[in-house]
């Protein structure tokens, strides 16, 4: 338990905790006003955003010793999976929203 308490004594951790708290409220604030029409695209967009985890994969991979093939293989896989999450997420969301856009134009024309 001490170990976990010590986390809070570290200024860097404290800064991160502040970000966490503010982000929680921000997320709630942003989402609670979404019309249900946009729920699926929004979920998909949020899905793409958590693909930011790929940055972690890039760091691990970039710091792995060049001769450590096991590490390189796992890292390689992690970067691919993370990129899939990011790119796939954004493209799928765009495809869903494209249909809303098309309809908008059709209506005004």
């Amino acid at each position: 338990m001490d170990a976990i308490m010590n986390l809070f004594n570290d200024p860097a951790t404290y800064r991160l905790m502040t970000i966490v708290i503010l982000s929680i409220f921000l997320g709630i604030e942003v989402i609670s006003r979404v019309p249900s029409v946009l729920h699926t695209p929004l979920m998909s967009g949020a899905n793409a955003i958590h693909g930011v985890v790929v940055i972690g994969a890039i760091i691990v991979m970039g710091e792995a010793p060049s001769a450590d093939y096991l590490a390189l293989t796992i890292g390689f896989l992690a970067v691919i999976l993370g990129t899939l999450n990011v790119v796939g997420g954004f493209v799928v969301t765009d495809r869903m929203l494209e249909m809303f856009g098309k309809k908008k134009k059709g209506k005004s024309a």
Partner: peptide, 21 residues
């Protein structure tokens, strides 16, 4: 883990937004 603010913001935003959704 990496003291990385963007991963933190992105992750927590999705975490809280996803929970509300």
């Amino acid at each position: 883990l990496y003291n990385n603010p963007v991963m933190l913001t992105g992750g927590i935003l999705v975490g809280s937004a996803g929970t509300i959704l």
